[in-house]
Design a binder for these strands. Structure first.
Lengths: 213, 213, 213, 213
DNA sequence: TATGAATGAGATTTCATTCAT
DNA sequence: AATGAATGAAATCTCATTCAT
């Protein structure tokens, strides 16, 4: 199913072309990640993929389309990731450990794909002003919300204390996502002065103390 | 002091020009906020400010320069805001109340200026790849870190429990910023389904339970 | 009414720009006339108008749009021309003389604008295959038919003889148009070996003997 | 004689190839006919012929070359057609009948090949501006004139009346061609509202009353 | 000061043609 | 003979910036 592609003018993509297509996708991820969507030129991508302008447009109708596919792919990965998080409420005592392991996986994912997510933000603000959705980028508009909805129930363990106000699970998940994303973003852009495991430890601490009670 | 400006070709800006300049600044904030930096055209700004292209370049040497100024301004406001946060450790019992009040002020600020912050992110990724720093945007690069440094010590009250790992104040502040920023962002973009006070309440809850212990 | 124009981004065109616009229009006519629509490059037009690429797109959103306006203009001229043809049935005996005078006017028009009409044909076949009318060229699709309808009744004087089959006026006018158009076309492309007045004379003869009986 | 072809690189074309070649030719006629020369893409032709780009260039050195061959073929047919027209001056009384029969044949030809002729016009204007005659399209430049020369003498029977000016046979033939061509063109594009035989009848009438006297 | 017309470098996209299989 | 992936020259169009008034 996801193994069948077509060219811009509707022809089936066979094994030979599949490789080129993949190379373009990867080059796109790299270039969008480093330069951002608007600053990246098709030329940069083509050069990185060691192919030609013409070839680019054989496989993607536009720069947007390439990003869109990248984003969709990432969206799937995130959804899977979320689905894979064990219900922390039923991991007796072990919660912190389980969470840490999961955050590690998330970190690996973010290292690979996080940079591209920036391009998503970049596009987003532009596209809601005029709504005609210029041919692409339907990717993840409500993705985050959806993820939060899936994540929420697994997370919040109500505090035993009574007066403590209860946090809505969806909101809590949103908070979690924000924390995770930002932490990795700060780490990636050097604004978070911490080394390897330290980031992971701190993140686990913060998340644990916020959401798992 | 901050009331003395010069035109692109070094002339002093008098009262009439002052107004035009301000109009451009405001228009810029509005346009950058809705369309994002790259998607916004000088033409949009000029139109919103009810003035002409020529006039734009009398007051700002480039599109980027306008954003830069906007960002600097916002940076100052944020710094002030941070300075104004009472030390939560010395507000006995009242902490939650004080925090909520402060977060409300922060929210008002975010409503005014938050959208423009997106443009900052947009620019950021672009500028680290080629290091020549194209004449602008030195504004906030380390702003966040600085704020976090100032915010940290006022926030985290170590839990009395022993085994509980302590969160580094700087990191904690970063987390706070992330939470606040994202919450308002989600609220602004409709991804957070909550009404007026609800957002503020929830945010207070989350922050309180995370950082103020 | 026809004296009010707007630029591509909706601004009023004042006297200063009016000239440039006109120059582009004229250059377009000349270039389309000599090279044909597809072969003509925007670059050719801009060069002929002694202006720049950017300027072209200030006044016209596309190459098509320029042709469209040219064609609309020509359509109006033709309509006027047709309206001005005296009813040949009421010009006793004088018909040939009147017709000749009119054909002379037509000739002058064709000398000015005939070349551009070729571009119309060039576009036409392309646009009916996919019907989405790519942004322009609504100009004259049924123009010819309309003209024929207006022209017909003024022309055909039924022969006094009985057995002679009567030609439908509309059809006859179509024939007339074809004759006139082709004659001038052949004359213009050198396929009709005849000099100045000779063309006019012959054309008058042919038309007269066909349609005015 | 006309049954021997070579590929682009000089190889003899055998039976299998012959078929492919023919299929391309036919596809070309269809596509050029509907979309016009410039708008037609090699891809369209290749698709219609159910073959590949590579194959196209085995048989034709360029897109233009295919049209050129098509046009040459059509030229031959027209020449034959003209040659077959009986001398109307010697068909006593029967002239109208004979003419009608011939026009019918012409109509059939036009139905098959007329559309492609549009592409000829399309190319023509382009090629006179730069004189280097880009390798093709010498096909029909003076075709029309030649045909007219052959057609003329067979047609015009001078009117017995004295004052009536005599129409030059060549010119007259040109007129005839124009009429026939345009009539069918209008009929084909729906601008001539008439059904089957009606077109033929009217055309016969018009031609007869103009040229055969 | 203010204006808006003009500019041109640069970006995206198309498509006839070539080439390796 | 046939294929279809790859190519790159060339064309269209955009928009930040300059300039004459």
């Amino acid at each position: 199913m996801s193994s069948s592609y077509v060219t811009t003018d509707g022809r089936e993509v066979r094994t030979r072309g599949r490789k080129t297509r993949a190379r373009l996708l990867q080059a796109g991820a790299q270039v969008f990640g480093t330069k951002g969507f608007h600053t990246a030129r098709v030329d940069d991508i083509v050069r990185a993929a060691k192919t030609s302008h013409g070839t680019f447009y054989v496989y993607f109708p536009s720069k947007e389309a390439l990003l869109d596919e990248l984003l969709t792919e990432i969206g799937h990965e995130m959804a899977e990731l979320v689905a894979d998080l064990p219900d922390l409420r039923s991991t007796n005592g072990d919660a912190r450990h389980v969470l840490r392991a999961w955050l590690e996986r998330f970190g690996a994912f973010y290292d690979r794909s996080g940079a591209v997510l920036q391009s998503w933000t970049e596009i987003e603000s532009a596209s809601d002003s005029d709504h005609d959705t210029p041919g692409a980028l339907n990717a993840g508009s409500d993705l985050l919300a959806a993820l939060a909805d899936a994540l929420g129930p697994k997370l919040v363990v109500p505090a035993p204390g009574a007066g403590q106000p209860t946090v809505d699970p969806g909101i809590a998940a949103l908070a979690l996502m924000a924390l995770i994303e930002r932490f990795h973003y700060y780490a990636a852009t050097g604004q978070l002065r911490a080394e390897g495991d330290e980031v992971l430890d701190t993140l686990t601490d913060v998340v644990a103390s916020t959401l798992v009670r």
